[in-house]
Design a protein around this nucleic acid. Sequence first.
DNA 1: ACATACCTGACCAAAATGGTCAAGTTTAGA
DNA 2: TCTAAACTTGACCATTTTGGTCAGGTATGT
Lengths: 141, 141
Amino acid sequence: MKLTSKGRYAVMALVDLARFDNINPVSLRDISLRQGISLDYLEQIFSKLKKNEIVKSIRGTQGGYVLNKNPNDIKLTNIFNAVDEKVKTVQCKKESKRGCNGKATKCITHNLWDELELHINTFFENKSLKDLLNNNKESRV
Amino acid sequence: MKLTSKGRYAVMALVDLARFDNINPVSLRDISLRQGISLDYLEQIFSKLKKNEIVKSIRGTQGGYVLNKNPNDIKLTNIFNAVDEKVKTVQCKKESKRGCNGKATKCITHNLWDELELHINTFFENKSLKDLLNNNKESRV
DNA sequence: ACATACCTGACCAAAATGGTCAAGTTTAGA
DNA sequence: TCTAAACTTGACCATTTTGGTCAGGTATGT
């Protein structure tokens, strides 16, 4: 059970963006340099963030990205959904008619995984970009 | 962020085992049939569970596996650790001296991932095999 | 017009996942 | 004592996911 770096990068980049986009649009190049994330990879990630209306892009010289919402209204849930970092505990959800192993019953631990998913998602829903900004004053190592 | 089936299978198998091992040792073949998990794969999983003293094996005809502890004392944490299903949010933990991206600072969201790990692990530590047994009376679909 | 920055899609290597296969060893019971 | 059931070990492997790179674009401020 692990977090993929696409999800991590998306959050890191957005925190970075939130810190600097008051003044000017922030170029991916800057984020890339500051956060140590490959520029090409960032472009993929921001393409998705844009589709999900979390950021806006401004083209041309001095262009870059800007948040499209108040940091308080951008929850981790929104970010993770945007980059397809979903919390998946069981696959059997889709075949809704049937039980889990093709049998007529739910798999013996089905309720547990539902609980787990809920537990994690609750965490993501209660955490906004703003929380992260506040929480990040004293992070020197 | 997803749960691997090794972890899921381990829990499913142990719940199955806990239900039936009062009378006789339970063979992997039976678990395989009841839970729809490949026998060969179960063997890999139980080899790890045994090393971690969660189950005992009894060889020979009519042999099989038995729980090695009270269901109340087997937490999800123990099971997941046994089969290497760890919760990993950041890689940067190991290089403890340095920060995250090889820089002198923690990555901007480091605290967040720590919190998340804690949040998930707490769930696993508070859940025992016994809880699952009780919770599983009415699981028909 | 040109540099900067976004945009798009193809491509790819490495690791993880989710197993299978083969060849044992051990032991209860007929 | 023979044999079948069951555990044991370790090699192997196909597929998917991950974490990118590369090669081209297109838009726009100056």
